[in-house]
Design a protein around this nucleic acid. Sequence first.
DNA 1: TTGTAGGCGTTATCAT
DNA 2: ATGATAACGCCTACAA
Lengths: 336, 336
Amino acid sequence: MADVARLAKVSLSTVSRVINRRAVVNKATLARVESAIQELGYQPNAFARGLMLRRSEILGLVLPDLHGEFYSEIIRGANSQARELGYSLIISSTRDGNDSQSLLTGTRLRSLLDGVAIMVSEMTDRVQTLLADSPIPYVLLDDDIEGTPHDSVVIDQHQGAMAMMRHLVVHCDVRRVIFVGGLATNFDTSARLEAYRQVLREKGMTVGPDDIHFLNYEYDTAFDLGLQRARDWAGACVFAANDEMAAGIIAAALASGLAVPQDLAVVGFDDTRISRMVRPALTTVRVPMFDLGAKAVGLLCQRIAEPARQPTQICLHPELVVRESCGCKGRAPEPT
Amino acid sequence: MADVARLAKVSLSTVSRVINRRAVVNKATLARVESAIQELGYQPNAFARGLMLRRSEILGLVLPDLHGEFYSEIIRGANSQARELGYSLIISSTRDGNDSQSLLTGTRLRSLLDGVAIMVSEMTDRVQTLLADSPIPYVLLDDDIEGTPHDSVVIDQHQGAMAMMRHLVVHCDVRRVIFVGGLATNFDTSARLEAYRQVLREKGMTVGPDDIHFLNYEYDTAFDLGLQRARDWAGACVFAANDEMAAGIIAAALASGLAVPQDLAVVGFDDTRISRMVRPALTTVRVPMFDLGAKAVGLLCQRIAEPARQPTQICLHPELVVRESCGCKGRAPEPT
DNA sequence: TTGTAGGCGTTATCAT
DNA sequence: ATGATAACGCCTACAA
């Protein structure tokens, strides 16, 4: 920067003014300085800059995992919105032990970030404490904690699961529904399970002792479970808590000689790209993943700009997507 | 930091020494300082730190796109390795116009990053220039440029495509192969196309005028193409340049009344999770995506640690994965 | 409109 | 083993 100043025959402050376009600078000097910057290929030092400005224009995004289409879309949305607003995004998952550490507990990066968007699969006390005394703004994704005021973007899981369950029970005329969730402690799994129970109760249907399973959202484990249970499930419908598990169960059912959806209906959740690639195409619930990421970043940036503003909660609504795997196609008119 | 020093009744330098564990510090004072840090919840300022140390422990990862399983796995690998080595990762795609700008051309972040791993779908002059005078170390992923010395991690695309083509022509006894690639200018598409041509030439097979198609690696466009061409393709095998397109073509074939693989064989590339979820399961070429990301970050970190070292190229080898979609199952013994 | 000087929070260099 | 002090590169009053 000193070099630039010397070449343009101005002082450091003028160079700074040109870079930041803050104050009015004489047309001629401005041109001189800019050409000097060009010539020297000068790039301001982000550290020194951050030291004064106290911001890095970098955001953190903490996810439970980075695997799969679901998180991939959240990342895409978050990244897209971040760029839009002039920020960069650092990504981290809580999966690998030491990983989220650096973003949540870790001392190194925290002060570098202007804010952080966090999604945890289960809200432990430890995480709550961590968040409670976070030195930087944060926004929660699809999760909520009582007490502490904070911004969040949530998905109306209950509504989505209700829509699916009602579709199955009312429209597809399913007599038995098997619930295959993620971990029982997961926020979304429990919200969906509740909807499952509620609808069955409304319709006077019973929940069999083996009708509820908790897995890990992965294809393979769902496939294994499907292989074990397929015969027992014949005639029922499996409500899987994501599309990957639904795909695994369909594969297992087919491998067991069951026709899908004739012998066993299977539905998913999320509406990732997988749902259209699987045969039969999945009936599922579209979750606006891209939006989830984008809105979270948007909210975060608003708070950064205005730290004292009211905590806001944005609620995103899922939408039932009827394809083939629920078995109602051709059996009755399309649901509206 | 001044507060910590005051509370612990030591000087700033001692606090710094405790934090960095560089010099030997008296046991008693060390304890005092540490408890003071605890009590005040002190966190060092990363900007000031970076200003002195001239490193941020942040790496950049630039990808052509963030969509889909393929890039998702690269990110996962890169992120995992970065964490392992004490770095964080900023992600960016060249898809959204203004996006990569901030990492490649953009002035803001560049000086914050300790290095950057870059994957471009086509190596333009502009990118070359950008890289040539990059102020920070970079490593290229699955791409190469002449002239400029640099680190890179490449996939032996040619070998992988050769293995697949030989399998199709020799083992599956396919008489006609249709090539469905990404953009013609893509690095990997052209490498695979070359292998396609080479094997057909070796076997004295001809390439029909409509046997080569260039799409965009996406399911939908492949599906559309499949719908148009399915009848013309009957009896042949489609060699798609990624699993998503293969899935799209299978779906189109089925929709057109063709049985896969009996009436039309279809094979993919990458071995993303999709390849096992599709029916028939895809014969494909496994590309070590996770490793690609991880190795790139590893290489980058080595260069950061030792800027003057010899440029290194790591070559990763793909592997043929035979499943059902090529149609050779049951027709002959497994290939070795 | 432009220049001068002080400070941001840390680490490094030198004394002690 | 510890402390004082000078950088690091930039921004921002304030003065000219």
